[in-house]
């Protein structure tokens, strides 16, 4: 049995927690996020014949006041950058976070998630702005539940490579 630690990061309010809520096992209250800055969920995926347990560290969103607690990133095998398609600033934040995490943990597999795909017509984030980074990108909708499973599978596949 393989186990991997995955961190979920992104700007405050991009929908990290609601994105995974329906797809993971959880025993902890979401209030943990606001009190100690992290909540841990579990996601089991099977890639090919290999099953992987992803321990998801949902880190409290970063904003002007709260900084990401970098000690929570230690030992992570990969991470998920979450962006709110309706907020261009959240992409900038994701880019900045990616740079900081790569600086701290070195090159690790990660995916970019553009959330709120159900509100595609109101998106501020331009496809070109996303494409210029060349990162593996998934469009998801926490509301409709689309794209989330695929995203986990893809990330798990990258971890096993």
């Amino acid at each position: 049995m393989l186990k991997k630690k995955i961190c979920m990061v992104g700007q405050f309010g991009v929908g990290k927690t609601s994105l995974v809520r329906r797809f993971v096992e959880s025993i902890f209250d979401e209030r943990y996020l606001t009190t100690i800055g992290v909540k841990i969920d579990r996601k089991d995926v099977t890639v090919g014949s290999e099953s992987v347990t992803l321990m998801l560290w949902d880190l409290a969103g970063e904003d002007d006041l709260a900084q990401l607690n970098v000690s929570h990133l230690r030992g992570a095998s990969g991470y998920i950058l979450v962006v709110d398609g309706c907020r261009a600033a959240s992409l900038n934040k994701a880019v900045e976070l990616q740079r900081r995490i790569a600086g701290q943990l070195g090159p690790l597999p990660f995916v970019l998630v553009l959330n709120k795909a159900d509100l595609r017509d109101r998106w501020e984030v331009q496809d070109t702005a996303v494409a210029e980074h060349g990162w593996p990108t998934f469009e998801t909708s926490a509301k409709a539940g689309s794209g989330v499973e695929e995203m986990f599978l893809a990330l798990a596949g990258k971890l096993l490579q």
């Binding site: 025993i27 579990r42 321990m55 560290w57």
Partner: peptide
């Protein structure tokens, strides 16, 4: 007892905190 995996992670997180 429900999920030692999550308990283990949370214990580590609490120590960091």
């Amino acid at each position: 007892e429900k999920d030692p995996e999550m308990v283990s992670g949370m214990l580590t997180a609490i120590q960091d905190f």
